[in-house]
């Protein structure tokens, strides 16, 4: 088990090393001019320049802060609506189609409306993040509750659980695996929304640096910021949900991620 995990880690490290090596080789072949197709070394160089200009770290910090606050808000709203949907079929029937419909919208589609309502105020970012991720969280929570095997509810009732305690003792823990996947999806969608919003209406943030890179015709900066957006989104996903997910998998005996590829 332990050696398998170690092996998988080396596999992943090797894969990225190879990816960057291929990129470097392709770039040095000069098939396209380097202002269109920069090498990884140029990208890293540009990121260091941005950091030295005191643009990089404040931008990362701003985006993360907006995102975390917006996501906490979205999670709170999404969980409350999701629990209401999961326990009341009228609410579920009516809201589910609405939320599924809202999920059809690309997250960036909320930005124009946010501009109209909130102008350039920071509230607009939270609006975009909340609208991007709330429906995914609510739907996953509702499905999680509706998919709790009825036998758990029956067992809890025969074991003397009062109705008010059902939420804390059965419904929340029983739906947790689904809820956590919903939160993860919500985080991803919210992250899309936050960066999209910054692309259009900000003077700081990762999205703004992307926009600025395009204005400057600087492909190194555009690619560099794209990479950072991926890295930080993924890092926070692991940081926030990794531990709790591993715990649930161990307790419930769900398939480990590695097993899927094995």
């Amino acid at each position: 088990m332990k050696t398998a995990t170690k092996k998988a880690t080396w596999l992943v490290v090797g894969f990225y090393f190879l990816l960057f090596a291929v990129w470097q080789v392709l770039a040095s072949l000069r098939l396209a001019p380097d202002y269109l197709f920069p090498s990884p070394i140029q990208v890293i160089h540009r990121l260091i320049e941005l950091a030295q200009d005191h643009l990089l770290w404040p931008s990362i910090k701003t985006t993360l802060l907006r995102m975390v606050l917006g996501f906490l808000l979205a999670a709170a709203i999404g969980l409350v609506i999701g629990i209401a949907m999961g326990t009341n079929w009228v609410i579920n029937r009516t809201l589910k189609s609405l939320f599924l419909g809202l999920q059809m919208l690309p997250t960036a589609a909320w930005v124009p409306l946010s501009l109209l309502i909130f102008g350039l105020r920071d509230t607009g970012f939270y609006f975009v993040v909340v609208m991007s991720s709330t429906s995914a969280i609510a739907i996953a929570t509702a499905d999680g509750i509706l998919n709790i095997p009825p036998i758990y509810l029956r067992a809890a009732r025969t074991l003397g659980t009062p109705r008010w305690a059902m939420y804390g003792r059965v419904i929340v823990p029983g739906s947790l695996p689904n809820v956590v996947s919903g939160l993860k999806l919500g985080w991803t969608l919210g992250w899309h929304g936050a960066v999209s919003a910054e692309l259009i209406k900000s003077s700081i943030g990762l999205g703004f640096l992307l926009y600025m890179g395009r204005e400057l015709n600087d492909a190194s900066q555009v690619i560099g910021i794209m990479l950072l957006t991926i890295v930080f989104g993924l890092f926070l996903d692991r940081f926030m949900f990794g531990l709790i997910e591993a715990r649930i998998r161990r307790r419930w005996g769900l398939t480990a991620e590695e097993d899927l590829s094995a």
């Binding site: 036998i151 029956r154 067992a155 025969t158 074991l159 823990p173 649930i248 307790r251």
Partner: peptide
């Protein structure tokens, strides 16, 4: 109503997977 003075044991064990 159900209560712990008449405890039921089920065909499927019905143990909670989130508890040890």
């Amino acid at each position: 109503k159900p209560g712990r003075d008449r405890l039921m044991m089920f065909q499927e064990h019905g143990l909670f997977p989130w508890l040890n």
